[in-house]
C-alpha cells in the first residue's frame, strides 16, 4: 500500500510538471500565431481595443501575462473569461461541456471494451473458424473507415432507413446511442485485434498448457489463465483509447450537433480564444494524465512482473 501511495504522489508531482510544461508550450504557441481575439467583422477603434485588452490582461508584457494567468489558475482554479463567448467564463464552458463529453466517452469506451474484448476472445478461441474470420474482417473494417464516414453512413441507415434514432441533438439516451456507437466502434476494433493477439500469445504459454494437461475445463482455463494475461495489451491500449475517443468526439460532436467540449476545443484554437483554448488544453491534459495513471495502475495490478515506479 505504501508504494501505491508513493507512486500516486510521484505521479501527481509529474502531473504538475506536465501541466506546467503544457501551459508554457501552449502559451508560447498561442502567442506566436498571428491574430488576436478581437478581430471581429468590424474594426474596433484603438482606444477601445486597449480597454478590451486591459480587460483580458492582454496589454501586460508577455511574461507578466504568463505569470498572472498561471497564478489565477493555481490559486483560484480560475481559467479566466472566454474572449469569444463573452457571456461565459472558461470554467463555465468546461462545466457545461464536460458532462456531455464525459457521458459520450464513457458510453463509447464501455461499449468498445465490451464489444472488443468479447470479439477478441471469441475469435482467438475459435481461431480460423468462420466467426473468427467474420469478426476480424469487421474489426479491420472498423479500423479502416474514418469515423466521419462511418457516422454519415450510420445516420443514413439508422436515422432514415430504419428510423430508430434521432439525427442529432442532446438530451435522451437515444440521442447518445448513435454517436457513442460511431465513436466506440473503431476503438472496439482495435481492442478486438489486440485481445485476439494477446489471447493467441497466451494460449501457447506453458502454464496454459499445464492447466490443460491438468484436465481443467476449457472455460476455466481460458477465463482464469488466458484472459488475464491476454488483457495486458488491451489495458495498455486504454490510455491511447481515451485520447482517441476524445479526439474522435471532435468530429462526432460536429456531425451530431452535441454540446460537448470537443467543438469548443477546435473553435477556441482556431479563433484565438486564448483563455478558452488554454483552459481546454489544461483540462484535456489533466484528463489524459489521470486516465494514463489509472491505466498504469491497472497494468501493474494485472501483471505482477511490472513494478510501480
Amino acid at each position: 500500500m505504501r508504494d501505491l501511495l508513493g507512486y500516486l504522489l510521484k505521479r501527481a508531482a509529474w502531473m504538475v510538471l506536465t501541466l506546467w510544461a503544457v501551459y508554457t508550450v501552449s502559451f508560447v504557441l498561442m502567442r506566436s500565431v498571428p491574430g488576436n481575439p478581437f478581430s471581429g467583422e468590424r474594426s474596433v477603434p484603438p482606444a477601445i481595443e486597449r480597454q478590451l485588452k486591459a480587460r483580458y490582461n492582454l496589454d501586460a508584457p508577455p511574461l507578466q501575462q504568463y505569470w498572472d494567468y498561471l497564478v489565477g489558475v493555481v490559486t483560484r482554479l480560475d481559467l479566466g473569461w472566454s474572449t469569444r463567448l463573452e457571456d461565459y467564463s472558461v470554467n463555465q464552458v468546461i462545466a457545461e461541456g464536460f458532462p456531455v463529453s464525459a457521458t459520450l466517452a464513457i458510453f463509447a469506451l464501455v461499449f468498445a471494451i465490451l464489444l472488443g474484448v468479447t470479439a477478441g476472445i471469441i475469435s482467438a478461441v475459435y481461431r480460423r473458424s468462420t466467426a473468427d474470420h467474420v469478426l476480424m474482417f469487421a474489426a479491420v473494417l472498423g479500423i479502416a473507415i474514418p469515423n466521419f464516414v462511418l457516422a454519415s453512413l450510420a445516420i443514413l441507415l439508422f436515422v432514415f432507413m430504419i428510423q430508430i434514432f434521432p439525427a442529432g441533438g442532446w438530451g435522451t439516451l437515444q440521442q447518445i446511442a448513435l454517436p457513442a456507437f460511431c465513436l466506440g466502434l473503431p476503438v472496439a476494433a482495435y481492442i478486438a485485434r489486440l485481445s485476439r493477439t494477446g489471447m493467441l500469445e497466451m494460449l501457447t504459454k506453458d502454464h496454459v498448457r499445464t492447466a490443460y494437461a491438468k484436465g481443467l475445463p476449457k472455460r476455466t482455463v481460458i477465463l482464469r489463465h488466458v484472459v488475464p494475461g491476454a488483457m495486458l495489451p488491451v489495458v495498455s491500449y486504454l490510455g491511447p483509447a481515451v485520447a482517441r475517443v476524445l479526439t474522435g468526439s471532435l468530429v462526432l460532436e460536429k456531425i451530431f450537433a452535441l454540446p460537448g467540449m470537443g467543438s469548443h476545443f477546435i473553435n477556441a484554437a482556431t479563433q484565438r480564444d486564448y483563455t478558452l483554448a488554454m483552459g481546454m488544453v489544461l483540462t484535456y491534459t489533466v484528463l489524459l494524465f489521470v486516465m494514463n495513471t489509472l491505466v498504469d495502475l491497472t497494468y501493474a495490478i494485472i501483471d505482477p512482473r511490472v513494478k510501480l515506479r
Partner: peptide, 18 residues
C-alpha cells in the same frame, strides 16, 4: 434556437422533425 453549424446535420434534423 438550436446551435447547428453543419448543413447536413441541419437538414437531417429538419427531415426527422427535430
Amino acid at each position: 434556437f438550436i446551435s447547428l453549424e453543419s448543413q447536413n446535420t441541419a437538414l437531417n434534423m429538419y427531415e426527422t422533425g427535430q
